[in-house]
Structure formats: C-alpha cells, structure tokens
C-alpha cells in the first residue's frame, strides 16, 4: 500500500475461454458490456484459449448457437477499446495480430504482470 499505481481503468475482464465450448467467454463479455454501458472504464485481457475469441471468420454453431463474434464487433460502440492480448499465448496459437478481427495491444511478460494492479476490479472468465 506504499505505492498506488496510476489506474488504467475501473475493470479488467480476463477472458481465458474460447467461443462455443462454454458460456464463460460470452458471460465475461456481457459483464464487460454492462460495465461499459454504466460508464465504467473497461479493459479486456485475452489469455490462452481465450485469444481464439478474436480469430476472424467465426460462424454460428450448427444449431444456430450465436457464439461471441457479433458481441466482439459491438465493443467499439460501447467504448471498450483497450483490448489486451498475451503475446506468449498469441504465439502459442501460431497467430499474429493481423489474424485477429480487432486491433489489439500485444503484451510482453512484464506488461502482463502489471495488468491486475492497474485496474480497480478484476474479473476472470
């Protein structure tokens, strides 16, 4: 409690799960959108499997399951523009920022380690 870091935002939502396989990604995004709609400053951090949420050309599931691609397209409308991606995780998927549907900020390991510190609340999904 000696040094109070400069806050980057109110809420950091960490997204660790991919689209379609579970509802965690969608429910995490819903929490982020609602927080933004209430005027909170929200950052998203995509890690591991969660990075696959940003891959282009996603489709609905065979039964019409909506997935999350359409929700991600709405982030800009909600003023959620701080999209952070774990660089190591991105490389692990064999992907580069140009493979993603939205512009992102790729974080190295030292930048990763400060994210929970510079937000007032952290929710992991």
């Amino acid at each position: 409690m000696t040094d109070v870091p400069p806050y980057h935002g109110d809420l950091l939502v960490i997204l660790r799960h991919g689209p379609h396989g579970s509802s965690l990604l969608r429910e995490g995004l819903d929490a982020a959108l609602v927080a933004a709609a209430f005027g909170r400053d929200v950052s998203l951090l995509f890690m591991g499997e969660g990075i696959s949420a940003l891959v282009r050309d996603q489709q609905v599931g065979p039964l019409g399951q909506k997935g999350t691609a359409a929700t991600l397209q709405m982030l800009e409308m909600y003023d959620i523009d701080r999209l952070l991606v774990d660089g190591e995780g991105l490389a692990g998927l064999g992907l580069a920022p140009r493979d993603l549907m939205l512009p992102v900020e790729v974080l190295d390991s030292s930048a990763m380690a400060v994210q929970p510190k510079v937000h007032r609340l952290v929710l992991t999904f």
Partner: peptide, 24 residues
C-alpha cells in the same frame, strides 16, 4: 500487493501458469 486464488491442480490444468504470468 494482490492475492491470487487458484483452485486447480497443476496436474489437471495449466491455468497456474496464467496466474503466475499476471502476478507482480
């Protein structure tokens, strides 16, 4: 100082690595 809380064994999940990666 933050407290991270982990409920998975390193034998079943690699999430512990993600926890460590975001720790100061």
């Amino acid at each position: 100082m933050l407290l991270h809380i982990l409920n998975r064994s390193p034998l079943s999940s690699l999430v512990y690595r993600q926890a460590i990666a975001t720790m100061g």
